[in-house]
Design a protein around this nucleic acid. Structure first.
Lengths: 140, 140
DNA sequence: ACCTTATAGAAAATCATTTTCTGTAATGGA
DNA sequence: TCCATTACAGAAAATGATTTTCTATAAGGT
């Protein structure tokens, strides 16, 4: 999914894509990792341009509404991942905070089985651990 | 898992079980639903006895450390579920906030497969939707 | 170009959570 | 059982992330 598509999706929901939002979006997509709002703010400031922290909060809120971002609670901090696809599962590295998208869903079967207890609206299957490169760096 | 076992587990970690903590624990276990700290505080106050909000926060923190509770981020609110088992998956009702424990794990297979991207430390598989009774009440 | 409506961003406000502090109570050993 | 040690309870204050407010500005449609 490209920037163009995202802009269109936002337009469909009557959100506007300003240069500030574009800067944050570019950073968010490029980075391929999860951020707290404050972290993303710093990241954008360094690489693209100065935007307000409020703007970052608002864009993350908007993206979440549209389904393009997902908040995670990890160690008491709220991290956001960029989610280009509806049905997504992540592998989240607890060390470098990189996020890898998984393109298979072994949980679909489970969804069907567990339908017994109620109507499943959505499910989350996420893996947490250390990615290859973090492992190879052999931190103590 | 009974109150007795929980008390022992807390003891092993050198935590003390006071009458206040026991009251909160009983409420938490009995209710079979998820709570925000404030909600649990109100719940305990109504049914058992008056305890401080700080105490509730501290017990939830303690239980989380020991692995007996898990925080969830839902609609920007942090909810805690009681987790008597290590390896647990939930069905969370978005309406009544009841939590049902699922005793099968269809994700184990996925864990093995996705081992390629890194070392999986833990995974989460959770289902969100509406439980039977909420469905049958037919809210609009 | 104009009009309507959403956004940017600083500043203030809010509110959940944490910390501090003092009195109290639980635990383990003598 | 008593004492010493250490953790806890809870009120009050502090913290800090997030939200709200407000005014100027900019985007998109006509």
């Amino acid at each position: 999914m490209e920037l163009k598509d995202i802009q269109q999706l936002l337009h469909e929901h009557k959100f506007r894509v300003t240069k500030e939002r574009e800067a944050v979006l570019l950073a968010f997509i490029d980075a391929g990792r999860m951020f707290t709002p404050a972290q993303l703010h710093d990241y954008v400031k360094e690489r693209y341009e100065q935007v307000g922290l409020t703007t970052v909060y608002r864009l993350l809120e908007t993206l979440t509404k549209v389904g393009l971002a997902t908040p995670f609670l990890i160690d008491g901090e709220i991290y956001y991942t960029f989610c280009p696809n509806q049905h997504h599962h992540h592998f989240v590295c607890l060390q470098c905070h990189q996020v890898k998208e998984l393109f298979q869903c072994s949980a679909q079967q489970a969804v069907d089985v567990d339908h017994q207890v109620g109507t499943v609206e959505y499910h989350k299957l996420d893996f947490f651990g250390r990615c290859r490169s973090c492992e190879e760096e052999k931190h103590c």
